[in-house]
């Protein structure tokens, strides 16, 4: 209560200090002003100001034009494809990423360090190379494609291919989000649970999963958000057929190719708002969860 009052009454000039003193709960911890101020300043300079340009540019076009470009049937089909494949890929990654993180943290097996190093490959490999490599694997004459083709499964140049590329791109997000938390999670809680008679499955679902839940959700959200915008790798493996395998970032490039910068920013704005909403929702769910768990 008193916090909000203090904020409303503060003159603009002293707001940062007021925030530091009253917004947060009193703490002996030092460095709030320094770190919080720096975080905001750097965030504004590198992310917010540059990003504001696309909103400014998009605002330059009229509302009608904005809707005509940003929400055209073709754009909607592209959003559906981009968001759908990104969600599917992020789900696959949430399941298998957790499994990989678990195996890496808890078990020992030969070659574990190499496997661990391999997980970050998608970050290091230029996305275009990943796209080319995946296409050459899954094309009808590729190493894997030649076996799938006779079974009637087409991967390259379909939405399945896009999903596979996005699984590749997003995997490290999940593994690397979960891994440190899992490693930090001592075995003592599990031992306690086991001593109290919990089965292994109960321990996992009641003790481990809630602890790594936030990290897993974060990994899922980041893999998803990254997948929605991905261009370099997808462009090779998707067929780019309008309305069928045309991803949203391709539409942005298409607009640029017509020198329509405003049109490009219109699509970019719609995509960004949607991804931002998803990220915000997930971060909010986590915050609520934390509060409920009393952490």
């Amino acid at each position: 209560m008193s916090n909000t009052l203090a904020l409303a009454g503060a003159p603009p000039g002293v707001l940062p200090r007021t925030i530091a003193r009253t917004w947060r709960k009193r703490s002996v911890m030092p460095g709030f002003g320094l770190t919080f101020g720096f975080t905001l300043a750097w965030l504004t300079l590198i992310v917010l100001i540059p990003l504001a340009t696309i909103f400014l540019k998009a605002a330059g076009m009229g509302w009608h034009e904005f809707v005509a470009v940003g929400l055209s049937p073709r754009a909607l089909a592209a959003y559906r494809l981009s968001f759908g494949t990104a969600a599917a890929a992020a789900l696959v990654n949430a399941v298998f990423g957790l499994l990989v993180a678990w195996v890496l943290v808890r078990y020992s097996f030969p070659g574990k360090r190499v496997v661990s190093a391999l997980v970050d490959l998608p970050f290091a490999l230029p996305t275009a190379v990943a796209g080319i490599a995946l296409t050459s694997l899954y094309a009808p004459n590729g190493w894997i494609g030649q076996f799938l083709e006779p079974m009637g499964i087409k991967v390259a140049f379909t939405s399945l291919g896009i999903t596979i590329a996005l699984v590749f791109i997003g995997l490290p997000f999940v593994v690397r989000s979960v891994e440190p938390v899992l490693a930090d999670l001592g075995k003592d809680v599990e031992e306690a649970a086991a001593t109290l008679g919990a089965s292994r499955y109960q321990t996992f679902s009641r003790v481990i999963l809630p602890a790594i839940g936030p990290a897993l959700l974060t990994g899922f959200a980041m893999a998803f958000a990254r997948g929605v915008g991905e261009y370099g790798s997808v462009i090779f493996i998707s067929g780019n057929m309008p309305g069928k395998t045309e991803i949203a970032p391709l539409l942005i490039v298409t607009q640029l190719e017509q020198y329509a910068y405003a049109g490009a920013t219109a699509i970019a704005v719609v995509m960004m708002l949607a991804s931002f909403a998803v990220l915000l929702l997930i971060n909010w769910i986590q915050a609520v969860n934390r509060r409920r768990m009393g952490a």
Partner: peptide
């Protein structure tokens, strides 16, 4: 605030 100046 001195700290704010340093930060900026």
């Amino acid at each position: 605030n001195r700290r704010a100046v340093i930060t900026a």
